[in-house]
């Protein structure tokens, strides 16, 4: 099969890449673009480790074809914070020890950012429901939720 040429904005930079039409966006990000921050947990929409936003909307990149990225704006975990200046959400995950193995963390950071953009002042219940598609097998969620609520408060304060 001929590869398809795709142009999309990835974390604010316009990128051109080739992808196999059967490849998922997750495979394209990881294997074609070297953006391995986005993780594969299940490949079936259940775990949220592959969360990215497309045109501002949170999705599972394992349930999107790479070719569907044409003309869109994609944000991955690599676009959040910088190596010398972490995003508040990332800082709060560290501060609250909201990770153990860390495989779920990139997806949770992306999803938390989407949550707080939509709803800067969520109740704990709203946060738990919003993030229900991000599974974590290590932490038991409590520390994650504490980090999310703290990040929300800090971000509101800073606004």
């Amino acid at each position: 099969m001929a590869k398809t040429h795709v142009t999309a904005s990835i974390n604010g930079d316009v990128k051109e890449f080739l992808c196999e039409p059967s490849d998922t966006l997750l495979q394209t990000l990881r294997d074609e673009l070297g953006l391995t921050g986005t993780k594969e947990g299940c490949g079936s929409g259940d775990c949220g480790a592959c969360s990215v936003t497309i045109n501002g909307r949170l999705v599972c990149s394992c349930l999107v074809l790479g070719v569907e990225a044409e003309g869109t704006e994609i944000e991955t975990v690599e676009g959040i914070g910088a190596s010398d200046k972490l995003h508040v959400i990332q800082e709060k995950f560290l501060e609250h020890a909201a990770l153990q193995c860390g495989i779920c963390t990139p997806g949770l950071i992306v999803s938390t950012k989407a949550l707080l953009e939509e709803n800067p002042d969520p109740t704990e219940e709203e946060a738990r429901y919003y993030l229900a598609g991000n599974l974590c097998r290590c932490t038991g969620y409590d520390k994650i939720i504490r980090a999310v609520m703290d990040a929300a408060e800090t971000m509101r304060g800073g606004a």
Binding site: G45, C60, L63, A114, G133
Partner: peptide
């Protein structure tokens, strides 16, 4: 139907 991520699509 599904999670926030699934709802997005």
């Amino acid at each position: 139907i599904g999670s926030t991520q699934v709802q997005g699509r």
